[in-house]
């Protein structure tokens, strides 16, 4: 596969995962920018670890709460997107990195929500 074609495939797959998260999940829309960044990091990191077969930190209630969202999402990704099974660990890690960046853009850095920078809840 040529580089450009590979990029297109990755982009398309990232968008499929973005679409899933936007339609089915709620965790990405906490009300403050710092909170969203924390959620994105906590949940998407664990989802990547699950999909890549890496150990996952569930040692605190907070970590465990991120993990439950990650488990359900990783299962849904596997069930819906057959192409995941054909990807190597490194490719999945790269895909998840791209997904993390895209979600961070859509919900934080590129978000038009004016309330995200309020200091208080």
């Amino acid at each position: 596969m040529g580089d450009a074609m590979r990029d297109d495939v990755m982009k398309d797959r990232t968008e499929q995962l973005v679409d899933y998260i936007m339609k089915k999940c709620l965790w990405q829309f906490h009300s403050r920018a710092w909170d969203r960044t924390r959620q994105n990091e906590g949940i998407l990191t664990r989802t990547r670890q699950l999909l890549c077969g890496e150990p996952v930190d569930i040692s605190t209630p907070e970590a465990r709460c991120y993990w439950v969202d990650a488990v359900c999402m990783a299962d849904a990704f596997r069930a819906r997107y057959a192409w995941l099974a054909d990807m190597s660990r490194d490719e999945i890690a790269e895909l998840m990195q791209g997904l993390h960046e895209r979600i961070e853009f859509l919900t934080v850095t590129g978000s038009l929500n004016l309330e995200l920078t309020d200091q208080k809840y």
């Binding site: 709620l26 906490h30 009300s31 209630p61 907070e62 465990r64 709460c65 809840y121």
Partner: peptide
């Protein structure tokens, strides 16, 4: 979350109780 996320956020900050939407 519209009407009651505030108390969950505060419980998370003050008591460390996680919030699951």
């Amino acid at each position: 979350a519209r009407s009651a996320e505030y108390i969950c956020n505060e419980l998370r900050q003050r008591y460390g109780t996680p919030r699951l939407d």
